[in-house]
Design a protein around this nucleic acid. Structure first.
Length: 955
RNA sequence: GCCCAGGUGGUGAAAUUGGUAUACACGCCUGCCUUAGGAGCAGGUCCCUUCGGGGGUGGAGGUUCAAGUCCUCUCCUGGGCACCA
């Protein structure tokens, strides 16, 4: 027997027509009676096919839009098309179609498909970014940015995609490849248009703080902006015999280590090189190095692990702290585009500098003493503190991989050879002497200085707090000959040769053991942590974090903040984009196209075939009409700008245009922006976190400063949604053949079942990935069929207390869940509610009516259909979202978990009026509890009202 | 390497933020119905069990009367950044 069901196709058609006839979703932006709510999703690129991902993006935000509307908000829920972009152009080249026609046809298809979802988007506000009436204002905004020096033309090394034949913004390069087509990106020096997003780095960062966004989104933006605090210090270069002074500014985050700066490194592109090279004795080598590295991209340079460089012979620079002369190198491990393109190299405290110093045998001067606290003998409060210099001598026997150690007799200590430095002795001599005195070994070969360390401990035999400054050395044993040690020494300790395992087993007493051991086994390395200054004149001995300000002043520098963020390169050598509204005079100087000539139309007589133009040039260069237009308007000798704008410019302000999509006099109405901005909630994909979202924030701030928009942040809440995977759990792609066509499923199961399935897969407020599952759609359809059957039980009678309780519980949870984009749990609550209603033969009128209202955002078509069938008035979607009657949620009884020593032993259901005493009595009478107590009497009872009673018994 | 999220049944996932772990579904198992279907309905489904219970949220410790939730360490997975001085 076929189950009774509803004809979804018929219902969808009918209800969608009804909504259109009622203009249910055309928002009156001037309505000030109701509170506004601006709900935005990222406008789609018209790729031509609506895939299930579009459903996930639009149909689910629609759930929220409908509920907000029922709550009495004036909801703006617009849609548009991000219609400029490469695919149209590629399709044009491949199939010989016109990009405009291709795009328009795709939009037509998608509009029809989107309508099948039954979303409540407001089509009357539609914006299309490739439409001249839209891009007129993209151009106008560009001219405003230019007038305020936020758009500029400059020559810079830029990322070039050889396949797409265009430059890319930094953000569009992923792992050295084009984000769009995956080709290896090249580097070119081109003159291009940039928007000065870097001018807003600090504010983009600071204004992030109060935004109610998930921390991970903020963190990704912070990382992208990449602020680092440091200082500019000036090293003065001396050039050869002429002894001309040339200042070189460096950026460092560690000005505290300036005494350890033993050489200077410039990026190969650093402008000072041209000056310095005139006096360099090896100009040829330097030029050759510049040429060689110039051929490589930044990525290729970093792939080559070994650091290379060339010294500028005959040139030195004065370290502003030590006043000593240090050599100057050029090396490609220094990036010209970050900081000042020059660094002071502190090999002792920077890994990269250390590596370079090792390779070129440059001096390593330790200026930070790492500090260790002896956890077993920490400083004792109130005792005198004395400093003491000492040595540690580590002797390695390579033959059997053992190390010379002392086992102390007065305590359970094992150490390396250690001792003090005597008058007139240097540390190395002291180490050798101590080794000989304490162990009798004299046949040593010096291997390395392991550097200085500082340790804090309490010297119990002297009753003083010690700060030990220790210099450690590594030796190899070259002769087994052991001389006799004094009886005094023998009384103090035994001499042992220990393996690494043995040392670990005994536990070496040195607080700095791990630090030393790493250097014994792995070799010398840079120490990048904090500590106390060393070899730094009057600063020596002080905490490195405390000397920063004084040090910067001393070295004549200043504190600065530096950003990883680069200016936004917006020129694209592509056809299907917004023309940059600029022309060049006969001298090649750029001029804005005056406002009365906007929109500056994209020419149509272009040859898109890749061979038709020179490399690095836009297809617009093939247009005769464009050239003639420029000559006609501006005069002979004037030439057009051929590049178009990055499509991210189009999408940086589209949400402003939604307010007045057809207005020919302004990009957006000031009054409406005042009442409608910022966007209340913006839903989109996590891939836009560091691109679109950052660009749009920058645009908003720039326009805010120009008094063109009323808020400095465009979006209040931001939710990154997840993605729908193919049925195989893999990311959908044509090549894998796992792309789900929603049209067929919608036809078979209905739009409501599809959107409810998508809503059910997981929380919509976090970016997960969920596999498509047809069984899941079936199960939603089954549920909707059950809801449909409930109409037969609708009865004219008063609601029972049980019904009301079930209803209000559902209202409460569903409302809260939809509010937080947790549609999955909203649906499960609805399912539970429906099951409760099914358990009775009839459903009270009032409850049935409320059920349809709760169903409306989730299954808008069926809810509307059933609303009509029940002969209720108007539309279910214009009803008021029910409010919760909290008094109805309360139960007279409560179920309490009874625990014994925290373990659940049973549940008791008792009247809510009972006090702890009576609950306790009740619980103690429970057979399971009696058994668990085994006659013991409770030592303590914890009662969490309405939840838990925990009886604690001893033992 | 650094910085963020996460790790709960066979699967997607819940858990009112420290108080009954696995809600709601999918799948699977058993049965019913049958016009034999990619249909519907009913029941079962974390593991062990001597049927009294016992164990269980990646692993190891810890805090607490009580831990999926808090702390420490550790191992995986996903994402971001990466020669950024």
């Amino acid at each position: 027997m076929a189950k009774e069901t509803f004809d979804h196709s018929d219902i969808e058609k009918k209800t969608q027509e009804k909504w259109e006839a009622l203009s249910l979703y055309t928002t009156d932006l001037t309505d000030t009676e109701k509170e506004k709510y601006y709900l935005l999703f990222e406008f789609p690129y018209p790729s031509g096919d609506l895939h299930i991902g579009h459903w996930y993006a639009f149909a689910l935000t629609d759930i929220f839009a409908r509920k907000k509307r029922m709550e009495g908000k004036n909801v703006l829920f617009p849609i548009g098309f991000d219609a400029f972009g490469l695919p149209a152009e590629n399709a044009a080249i491949k199939n010989g179609v016109n990009p405009k026609d291709w795009t328009e046809q795709n939009m037509e298809t998608m509009r029809a498909q989107i309508r099948t979802m039954g979303t409540s988007v407001d089509w009357s506000k539609e914006v299309v970014s490739c439409d001249p009436e839209y891009y007129k204002w993209t151009q106008w905004l560009f001219t405003k940015l230019y007038e305020h020096k936020l758009a500029e033309r400059k020559t810079a090394p830029v990322k070039w995609c050889p396949k797409d034949q265009t430059v890319l913004a930094n953000e569009q390069v992923i792992d050295g490849r084009c984000e769009r087509c995956g080709s290896e990106v090249e580097e070119k020096n081109l003159t291009q248009w940039f928007l000065k997003i870097t001018a807003y780095a600090e504010r983009l960062l600071a204004d992030l703080e109060p935004l109610p966004w998930r921390e991970e989104i903020k963190e990704a933006q912070r990382a992208w902006i990449g602020e680092s605090e440091g200082a500019h210090l000036t090293f003065t270069a001396h050039t050869g015999e002429a002894d001309v002074l040339h200042p070189i500014e460096v950026f460092t985050t560690r000005p505290d280590t300036v005494f350890g700066a033993t050489y200077l490194v410039l990026a190969p592109e650093h402008p000072s090189i041209d000056v310095l090279i005139q006096d360099a004795l090896n100009a040829d080598l330097v030029r050759a190095y510049q040429k060689e590295t110039g051929k490589k991209t930044e990525r290729e340079r970093s792939e080559n692990k070994a650091k290379t460089g060339v010294v500028l012979e005959g040139i030195t620079a004065t370290n502003p702290a030590t006043k000593e002369e240090v050599p100057v190198y050029i090396a490609d491990y220094v990036l010209n585009s970050y900081g000042t393109g020059a660094v002071m190299a502190v090999p002792a405290h920077d890994e990269r500098d250390f590596e370079f110093a090792q390779r070129y045998a440059l001096p390593v001067v330790q200026v930070i003493e790492p500090s260790f606290v002896d956890g077993k003998n920490p400083h004792v409060e109130g005792k005198e503190v004395t400093d003491r210099n000492g040595v540690i001598g580590i002797v390695r026997n390579k033959k059997n991989n053992t190390y010379l150690c002392l086992a102390w007799k007065h305590a359970d200590w094992t150490t390396f050879v250690t001792g003090g430095i005597e008058e007139g002795e240097d540390a190395l001599e002291a180490a050798k002497r101590e080794i000989l005195e304490e162990t009798g070994y004299g046949g040593l070969e010096f291997v390395a200085t392991l550097g200085n360390t500082r340790s804090e401990f309490f010297a119990s035999h002297k009753e003083v707090n010690r700060i030990g400054h220790t210099t450690s050395f590594l030796f190899d044993l070259v002769s087994d000959t052991q001389s006799e040690t004094t009886s005094e020494e023998k009384a103090k300790h035994d001499v042992l040769w220990l393996t690494e395992q043995e040392m670990h087993a005994r536990g070496m007493r040195h607080a700095e053991f791990d630090y030393l051991w790493k250097r014994v086994t792995e070799g010398l390395q840079a120490y990048t942590g904090d500590g106390y200054l060393l070899n730094s004149e009057q600063f020596s001995g002080r905490d490195n974090r405390e000397v920063l300000e004084e040090m910067v002043t001393y070295a004549g520098g200043e504190f600065v903040k530096n950003y990883r963020l680069r200016d936004w390169l917006v020129s694209r050598q592509r056809y299907w984009g917004c023309p940059i509204p600029v022309v060049y005079d006969p001298d090649g100087e750029p001029h804005l196209v005056p406002a009365d000539h906007l929109p500056w139309l994209l020419p149509e007589d272009v040859d898109l075939t890749p061979g038709a133009r020179g490399e690095g040039t836009s297809p617009l260069a093939t247009s005769k009409e464009l050239k003639e237009r420029v000559t006609r308007i501006f005069g002979e000798g004037w030439t057009p700008e051929y590049d178009t704008l990055d499509t991210f410019v189009d999408s940086s302000w589209y949400f402003l245009r939604y307010l007045t999509p057809r207005d020919d006099h302004t990009f957006s109405d000031q009054g409406l922006m005042k009442s409608w901005l910022p966007v209340d909630r913006y839903s989109g994909g996590s891939e836009h976190t560091t691109m679109h979202l950052l660009y749009a924030r920058f645009f908003q701030k720039a326009l805010y400063d120009l008094a063109l928009v009323p808020t400095s942040e465009p979006f209040n809440e931001r939710f990154n949604r997840g993605i729908i995977l193919g049925p195989d759990g893999q990311k959908m792609s044509k090549s894998k053949g796992n792309v789900v066509n929603p049209d067929a499923v919608v036809k078979e199961q209905g739009a409501d079942a599809v959107r409810m399935f998508l809503a059910f897969v997981g929380p919509y407020n976090e970016p997960g990935s969920y596999p498509w599952n047809l069984d899941g759609v079936h199960s939603m359809r089954r549920f909707l069929d059950r809801v449909y059957l409930l109409r037969e039980r609708r009865t004219e009678r008063e609601a029972t207390p049980d019904e009301l309780k079930a209803l209000h519980r559902a209202i409460d949870k569903i409302g809260n869940d939809i509010e937080r984009f947790k549609f999955n749990t909203a649906i499960s609550t609805l399912m539970i509610f429906v099951r409760e209603l099914e358990s009775n033969p009839t459903v009270a009128q009032e409850v049935f009516r409320s059920l349809l209202i709760l169903l409306a955002p989730l299954a808008p078509h069926l809810a509307e259909h059933m609303w009509e069938q029940a002969e209720y008035k108007e539309s279910v979607h214009t009803q008021v979202w029910p409010s919760v009657d909290v008094s109805l949620l309360e139960e007279e009884t409560m179920t309490i978990t009874v625990q014994v020593n925290g373990k659940k032993k049973g549940l008791i259901t008792v009247s809510k009026k009972l006090t702890q005493e009576t609950v306790e009595q009740e619980a103690l009478g429970d057979p399971a509890v009696i058994a668990a107590l085994k006659g013991a009497s409770p030592s303590r009872v914890i009662y969490v009202p309405g939840r838990t009673l925990n009886i604690v018994i001893p033992g």
